[in-house]
Design a protein around this nucleic acid. Sequence first.
DNA 1: TCCAGTTCGTAACATATGATACCGAAGTGA
DNA 2: TCACTTCGGTATCATATGTTACGAACTGGA
Lengths: 242, 242
Amino acid sequence: MLRTGQNSGKELADTERIAAHLACCPAFEAVAPDTLRDMLQRHHYHITSHDSGAIVAFRGDRYERLLVLLSGEVRTEMSSYGGKQYTVAEYTAPCLLAPAILFGKDNRLPVSVIATRPIELLRLPRAAVLALCRTEEAFLAAYLGDISTRLGVLADKLRLSRFATIRERLADYLLDQYHLQGSSTLQLPHSRRTQAEILGATRPALSRVLSELAEAGVVNYDRDYVQILDLEALAGLVDSLD
Amino acid sequence: MLRTGQNSGKELADTERIAAHLACCPAFEAVAPDTLRDMLQRHHYHITSHDSGAIVAFRGDRYERLLVLLSGEVRTEMSSYGGKQYTVAEYTAPCLLAPAILFGKDNRLPVSVIATRPIELLRLPRAAVLALCRTEEAFLAAYLGDISTRLGVLADKLRLSRFATIRERLADYLLDQYHLQGSSTLQLPHSRRTQAEILGATRPALSRVLSELAEAGVVNYDRDYVQILDLEALAGLVDSLD
DNA sequence: TCCAGTTCGTAACATATGATACCGAAGTGA
DNA sequence: TCACTTCGGTATCATATGTTACGAACTGGA
């Protein structure tokens, strides 16, 4: 479903709703509500909704408008000719999608964007974003900061990809979850297949490594439940990467 | 050698020289010369020189000033605990270094920066860059465009790292050189060891793969000389990644 | 409750790549 | 010219991970 915003009564209601979403969105949250509404009224935006599982954008597509995830969740992934998927990142609304790519000379998406829940997207013209960058210093700084964080994440993924074994990557993932969940008893939010896609491995290989960690007494697990038994051993696996 | 610029006679001569370098530098070239000189006089910059082989910045260092490569060449790399090097990119002056990282909340360099020739660096305060972004739309667009290109390169590196065999990565490298040198007779600009670091492999493994390509009649080679015999076969190796 | 489809663990085998070592060739500087 | 260092090729063996397949367990809808 595609909705376009430009100065009609129904769209004014949209504008209010979108502005409310943007008030919590990285970069946009730094802008006064009036300025956000003004921006939305001045530029020709689209709203689209997508079902869970929908491929919102393909790797290689031209990226001419900033996508802002208003609701739901997406993951970005690369896939290989042979059908292997590699999950690069996951995003929860509200957030920006591919903020840096918007400004490339050859601005083709380096990843595909897949909805992992039903989502709603705001599609903003590049000119709207550029104008905000120029007039709102806090927006500019936050926008650039957002890009910087993403670049850091990508670089980290590259480093792990190059230097880390599956075991080390799994240790990293489990430690992340440990810090997120604040407990050494974890309910993992991903299926084994999805975990494998995030870690850049195959499901049987991941199972093997998890099984080895269990045999070594580092963890205890059953399906999506993992109990960390030896936190130091796990941290040691990650530390050996630095 | 460290030189600092701020409003003295000798530094005015520096300012002219630096402005001349910046006139050819991505993003800065979009700014009028007067504006560049003005910016340099208003902000407290540093100039540093480094010998070939110098590690200018370490992965994990805080990155608080924009580094601009005024002369020479650098490479950026990640290294592993065990001493393996992975070359992420190479840059020739004049160019920006890590333009996105400057704005991160936790702005730590994801790579080390090594001079591969004697170099000269301009170190600009973040505020100087932000001010230019606000006042010079063309600078902002070009700066963001530069970041976008880097992110694309990094994403490509990640994709190749995840999905491509050494053979496919080598084919990609040779095709790049073919397009750069405009000939199927290549004089490779890197030693085998450095090639291996760029491709994310070990030297013996790279030698093996090159030898296999030669046996298959795809290339003919001796040391840094490579002749592409079957361009289609080489291109086919790369195409199978898309 | 039953059944079809999906997920997961595991095993066996295959493959790509790394580690190590050695040797000859090439380059460098005194 | 010679000694030393670096570079590059090659071989052998080791290791991590992928591929394929199968059976058990789980899930959701009729």
